[in-house]
């Protein structure tokens, strides 16, 4: 009886360990990805000299034009959401490390917060993708001209940041799925 109990206990602990280890790795990955995404988009600024023709008879004027990340509110939203997710990932990393007894309430709280992060990160990624697509392709119906033919590096940086934050959102989604499966396994 005692031996059986001990064996059972060991199996359960091993299971928890393996899940927790992958959880820690994923959490750290999410932290790094959202941090890099926020920084890449947050330092995004490009100045270009654009020649403008004011009158057909005059020689074209060269005007420096600057594109900054905070000119578009969708990018501001994405940077804020990335920062929130990054800070939350750091806090939850500490909580998961400290939560050695695997308290049920704390685990549920972390799952719910992960879920909210999924929603926030996906909506921020969607918003920035929509604005970036308008900048890349333009919209002839609304006469919104594209800007990516002028600002190359700016657009590349936005695309990189978008990719990283959507990857971070996917990692949060995987974390929620893994902890759900873990919860179902305990049944």
């Amino acid at each position: 009886m005692e031996v059986e109990n001990g064996g059972n206990k060991e199996v359960v602990v091993a299971n928890k360990r393996s899940f927790r280890c992958s959880d820690l790795v994923l959490r750290f990955l999410a932290l790094a990805l959202t941090l890099v995404a926020a920084i890449v988009l947050g330092v995004n600024k490009e100045t270009k000299n654009v020649s403008m023709e004011i009158l057909p008879k005059l020689s074209p004027l060269t005007v420096p034009v600057t594109a900054k990340w905070h000119y578009l509110s969708a990018f501001v939203y994405l940077v804020v959401v990335d920062s929130i997710a990054c800070a939350y990932a750091a806090i939850s990393l500490v909580i998961t490390l400290a939560n050695r007894g695997n308290k049920k309430g704390l685990t549920l709280l972390i799952m719910i917060s992960d879920l909210i992060m999924v929603g926030l990160l996906f909506s921020g990624g969607g918003a920035a993708t929509a604005v970036g697509l308008i900048g890349y392709e333009g919209n002839t119906h609304l006469r919104w001209n594209k800007v990516c033919n002028i600002f190359d590096r700016y657009c590349h940086q936005v695309a990189a940041s978008l990719f990283l934050s959507l990857l971070g959102a996917t990692i949060f989604l995987v974390m929620v799925s893994l902890s759900t499966l873990n919860l179902a396994k305990k049944h």
Partner: peptide, 11 residues
Amino acid sequence: VSAATGTAGAV
């Protein structure tokens, strides 16, 4: 759904 809300909201 939240990505859809974000895209439509931004535009």
